[in-house]
Design a protein around this nucleic acid. Structure first.
Length: 111
DNA sequence: AGCTTGACCGACC
DNA sequence: TGGTCGGCCAAGC
């Protein structure tokens, strides 16, 4: 097939595919996704999400420290509330994800 | 070819 | 809890 109008790079497709598998109420970090794919790194995953994340549950792919996506934290928090994702209230500042409980390793058996 | 940037991460203090 | 630092790796300029 010829390159009509630039399709999604294969790597991007794989990243989005993983993002779609994350169960509601759970999250994976950028690094987790990269590690699961065994390809690329957190920053590559971050780039893919920045460019094409809008097509998938982007709020389920987060930074390792559990800080909601800057600029979209309100929308993200709405989703977390709606799907009962474990949050942790911090003394100063807004809520963060409770990574210990919300983190998903990508294994369907651990849902 | 070299330098900067970015939806990052872990170690350290 | 929070800030810095070095490492990371692809893209842009």
């Amino acid at each position: 097939m010829s390159r009509m109008s630039e399709q999604l790079p294969e790597y991007a497709e794989r990243v989005l595919e993983v993002a779609e598998r994350i169960p509601p109420g759970r999250v994976m970090t950028y690094g987790d996704v990269a590690e699961w794919l065994g390809e690329g790194g957190p920053r590559q995953v971050g780039r893919v999400m920045a460019l094409f994340g809008g097509a998938v549950p982007w709020w389920r792919v987060v930074r390792a420290d559990g800080v909601p996506l800057p600029g979209s934290e309100l929308r993200a928090l709405e989703h977390y509330r709606a799907e009962a994702t474990p949050l942790r209230s911090t003394p100063a500042g807004g809520p963060r994800l409770d990574m210990r409980r919300a983190r998903w390793d990508g294994d369907e058996a651990h849902i």
